[in-house]
Amino acid sequence: MVVFGIGGWTGRAAASQTADMPHDHHDHDHAHALLPPDPALRVKALETVLTRKGLIDPAALEEIIDTYQNRIGPRNGARVVAMAWADPEFHRQLLEDATPVVADLGFFGRQGEHIVAVENTEDVHNMVVCTLCSCYPWPLLGIPPGWYKSDAYRARAVREPRKVLADFGVTLPKETSVRVWDSTAEMRYLVIPRRPEGTDGWSVDDLAALVTRDSMIGTGLAKLPTTPEAPAA
């Protein structure tokens, strides 16, 4: 198996014309014995032709990869959830129309999608899927995990959500109904998990540390406080 380091030949600004070695920890003076995998070469070919036609800018590709690899991730969503837990007015606005509220925090959909916040309560547990492909609130959660994109999850989340939740180690009271939201290219959902008991007076930062990615997809719950004493706000 050929292992390519992130930031290696595919991630460079000059990737359309120049590529670093995929295995540059060796410096022997011989030709490459190993080609990059076939799909990698197909991507390079697309990129080269599109760059030559002026349709893409390699520097912009690098920026996009850096953004999704390093700057966008579940911590964005966790902050939004924590703010909703801590601030009733923010909570109200978020549930009313999340798109402008999260945009104000700098989390806006580059693909023009709307964000909808759905809140878990004692009575309702929300869970998110994209049955057609893999639509996901990128600005808040980053790139979806592999399981979110799998046929198994996409098919089963709607058909047997409680069994899927059990696979994730989540068991809900029988009285709690499960509502499954099917994302689209235009509409992405963020689950506001239930706030754990014993967190009164916690700061947004401390609350955000309890909010997991899976809890914002609805396949997990927020973490419980590990110490009985709340940290200083």
Partner: peptide, 16 residues
């Protein structure tokens, strides 16, 4: 986030 560099690359080309 991306398990192979080409996953990142094809994603970025599309988003761009």
């Amino acid at each position: 986030v991306f398990s192979e560099p080409w996953h990142a690359q094809v994603f970025a080309v599309t988003v761009h």
